[in-house]
Design a protein around this nucleic acid. Structure first.
Lengths: 107, 107
DNA sequence: TACTAATATAGCCATATAGCTATTTCAATA
DNA sequence: TATTGAAATAGCTATATGGCTATATTAGTA
């Protein structure tokens, strides 16, 4: 996954409410009106959280009748975990440091 | 990993500067004064980022002479990735919803 | 068509955060 | 001991964020 996408996705996951939403969606699709009583926060707050999760492709939405059901995008969650085990190669940064004589070498 | 620890760790990773620091430490231990020219931000800013990473056990520090070298805690990074594949079971929340007659069931 | 219910959007407020400069702490050394 | 250099801490500012209420939008139904 592209570096900045990964950072954005991790930031989206790094909020207790959103992380718990992800854990709940891992068990069962949910609509906003179910999440409201679970978290005890307002409906617009839940909507905003869903919007952030949607923006980083962690959830998808499907309208069913008057409800919008959100589903976990397991592929994306896996990709995030995988990306953490395959971090980008920034060795050029150290080459640059060396060229500038800024590499610190102890003894 | 405990749920709130996981959220805190993800939040720490969800910043482009800190995520890149983690990627750099994955290649080689670094001291603060090496990171300063790489990012082009002030020394105290780098120190603060290291402090946040230390607080969630993603890095450890070792003083070598006048420098403090930071190392990636690979175990913790792996634990985070693994935790994303083993999210906590919140089924009791759905049981509670059902008791309150708030579960939404479409057809 | 009018009404109801679910969700999204707009906009406000308090807090958190990521940057900065100035200063302090701490280890190495002249 | 005095000095130097690396890193940490304190405190400031601007921006982002997570909550809220009010309102708009959209789908289903009387």
């Amino acid at each position: 996954m592209e570096f900045h996408k990964l950072a954005d996705a991790l930031k989206a996951l790094g909020d207790p409410t959103r992380l718990k939403i992800i854990a709940l969606l891992n068990m069962r699709d949910c609509c906003v009106c179910e999440l409201v009583p679970i978290f005890g926060i307002s409906q617009p707050s839940i909507s905003k959280h869903m919007s952030r999760l949607k923006n980083v492709d962690l959830v998808t939405e499907t309208r069913r009748g008057q409800w919008v059901f959100y589903s976990l995008n397991r592929k994306q969650l896996e990709d995030i975990g995988f990306s953490l085990t395959r971090l980008p190669d920034f060795s050029s940064e150290f080459d640059e440091l060396e060229r500038q004589g800024l590499l610190v070498t102890c003894e």
